[in-house]
Design a protein around this nucleic acid. Structure first.
Lengths: 229, 229
DNA sequence: AGCGCCCGTTGACGTGAATCAAGCTTGGAG
DNA sequence: CTCCAAGCTTGATTCACGTCAACGGGCGCT
């Protein structure tokens, strides 16, 4: 199994973080790779390791007893895959396409975090961000129509993706329609239909592994007065 | 405006917390009361204070531009009303019935937290809990039928309420139907109908300001084989 | 005690998304 | 290049929940 050169990513480096901390973290980190579709950890597993995503996209999800699935989030490079504290994972994670990951032994990371206020602060900030985006999602699922959900997903995804790779016309969508549906609380047919409707309205263009947003600047691609008939 | 004797509640005291920390916190806290329906803070307000709930119930919610509302959570005594870090509130809070609150000046609390690993740890734990319950809620809104949502709400609410006041037969529901509906992503008529259906099935009994759960032990009050026709 | 206002309940009806069911497109293997 | 399978799209139909509307009951106010 070959190794890519740079496994240590934006992780922890969004905010400045002093060199010693970084050195400590680097020492603890083990690079790991997963192929598309492979499971990184499962809901309920004892959390022996913590994971930081270096490259690729990971879907985080819960499985209900009857087989329904809720995708809780899509992780991008720089994200933790779960709060590094807590004994067990509260959701499963698997790779969407190939991914590179930093694995940290949980006990040691925990110790490092707890003795280091700087890192701890960042962790709280991370948690607060996660909480906020969970609440955004909650609001969306509680109130939004299918179209609002899809539009909101596309706009947010574009913003997140753009943060990493310089602006390209098309927004890549490496995940399957089913993943998007499970994220938005819809069925995949509904996602597909909604995409089609948006395309007919010239709000998006569907391309092989992504979409092009026609008016990405405005937060809404929503119905404007005299749209296409 | 009279004051109740004990304003300093279970807050921070779920986990042991050394006496000095507690003394510091007590020094910072100002007791405040609000009447039912009053607003404690609004989404977007600069967070000059942090709030800990001592008595009563508070609904935390977001308002959408078009007037729709998502209730993000109901807070019970012992809960923070928001993460004490972060410049602005990301949701509004108002009192459901009369409440007693501990108000902390944010800057000083922040300083205390950041210099005190013990408190910081608890804060992370609080954040992790919040995150998890947000994800539970997300899963419910993404996948659950009206009945599943209502049942889940009742069971969880019962568990949380039972933690504070010793077991009583009836589970109090101080919030309005509209609040429950906005929490569950339903309309109030649907909540009302679902209550009625559960009562007909002898899963619950509706009483003046609450309900009695007939089989509270099992997590599901759901349809059993030969239910009432 | 009587009045009026919320709030909750109940009913009839409409609608958006789910479901069921074909086709179609794409990408990988031989 | 052809074949096959997985995933995507599209269409017809159904159903759960939303919408609109009327009614009723509890509670505070006078």
């Amino acid at each position: 199994m070959p190794r890519t050169s740079s496994f240590f990513p934006t992780l922890f480096c969004r905010e400045p973080c002093d060199a010693r901390d970084l050195a400590e973290l680097t020492r603890l980190a083990t690079p790991v790779r997963f192929e598309g579709g492979q499971t990184i950890f499962r809901e309920g597993d004892v959390a022996r390791s913590a994971f930081g995503l270096s490259q690729g996209v990971v879907r985080l999800y819960r499985l209900l007893p009857d087989g329904r699935r809720q995708v809780v989030a899509f992780a991008l490079p720089g994200d933790f895959l779960a709060m590094p504290l807590g004994d067990r994972f509260s959701f499963s994670a698997d790779a969407v396409g190939d991914v590179s990951i930093c694995r940290f032994p949980r006990e040691e990371l925990k110790r490092l975090i707890q003795t280091n206020p700087g890192i701890m602060r960042q962790l709280i900030e991370f948690a607060a961000n996660e909480l906020q985006s969970a609440q955004d999602q909650l609001t969306l699922l509680g109130n939004g129509s299918a179209e609002e959900r899809v539009v909101s997903f596309l706009v947010n995804w574009r913003r997140r993706v753009a943060r990493q790779t310089p602006p390209s016309q098309a927004v890549p969508l490496p995940m399957r329609r089913q993943d998007i549906a499970d994220f938005l609380g819809l069925k995949l047919e509904t996602v597909s239909r909604t995409f089609a409707k948006l395309e007919q309205r010239n709000a998006i263009r569907i391309v092989p592994h992504g979409v092009v947003l026609m008016r990405p600047e405005q937060s809404a691609l929503v119905a404007e007065g005299g749209g296409a008939s």
